[in-house]
């Protein structure tokens, strides 16, 4: 090594370009240079006049009585989302996760993840019963592999994520393949019984 790197000496690393050079080369360089004039910066200062709110506490949205809430909240917030209310087994798991465990507990989140999988499985089954079955071709957008350069986007491009992408089709298509196999076996067994 010809010289001692700056990290081991008292000296700053020399800048490659001066501010003047950067200002000439980069459009807008330094427009927000003044750190005291970055008014968007989230300092904890009270801003009484800027939000558009005309209330100190918002009027309450009706219907919050039975809604789940984090037990770290004092109450159901005055405004809340009403999309996809809890229902069924997944709803029961979610209700328990919210009622029993705070956000600090891993059990809270892992139960919610489990409820998501329970609901997804039930939804796939119900979609068949309701004659609007999930379509693994259209719902995964997999046909874009053919129309959007699936192969050339992936290979020979030093992408790191291709190391693990082989797992995705297995996980996505696996349940459909398993269901088809189980269905075929059941059908074959029924025919033998006849």
């Amino acid at each position: 090594m010809d010289r001692t790197p700056h990290a081991y000496t008292p000296h700053d690393v020399a800048r490659r370009e001066t501010s003047e050079q950067l200002r000439a080369r980069i459009p807008g360089w330094g427009a927000d240079l003044d750190r005291a004039d970055r008014p968007q910066f989230p300092e904890l200062s009270l801003r009484e006049d800027l939000t558009g709110a005309r209330w100190e506490f918002p009027e309450r949205q009706p219907g919050g009585e039975s809604r789940e809430r984090s037990i770290e909240h004092a109450f159901v917030t005055p405004v809340f989302g009403t999309a996809q209310p809890r229902r069924g087994l997944s709803g029961a798991i979610r209700k328990h996760a919210y009622a029993k465990y705070s956000e600090a507990r891993a059990a809270h989140w892992l139960m919610l993840i489990a409820a998501d999988r329970v609901e997804a499985t039930g939804a796939h089954l119900m979609s068949i019963v309701r004659l609007h079955p999930d379509n693994p071709i259209t719902e995964t957008g997999i046909t874009s592999e053919l129309t959007r350069s699936g192969l050339s986007s992936r290979f020979g491009r030093k992408r790191s994520d291709t190391n693990h992408q082989w797992m995705d089709p297995v996980l996505v298509a696996g349940p459909f393949v398993a269901a088809a196999v189980v269905g075929a076996k059941a059908l074959a067994r029924a025919r033998r019984t006849d």
Partner: peptide, 27 residues
């Protein structure tokens, strides 16, 4: 962000941390 404009956080410009709109979580 959905935000109320009047809670402790919104009153200080932290709109993404609004405490009046997400019943499911405080974090």
């Amino acid at each position: 962000n959905i935000f109320c404009g009047s809670c402790w956080y919104c009153a200080r410009g932290l709109y993404s941390n609004c405490h009046n709109v997400n019943a499911n979580a405080t974090a």
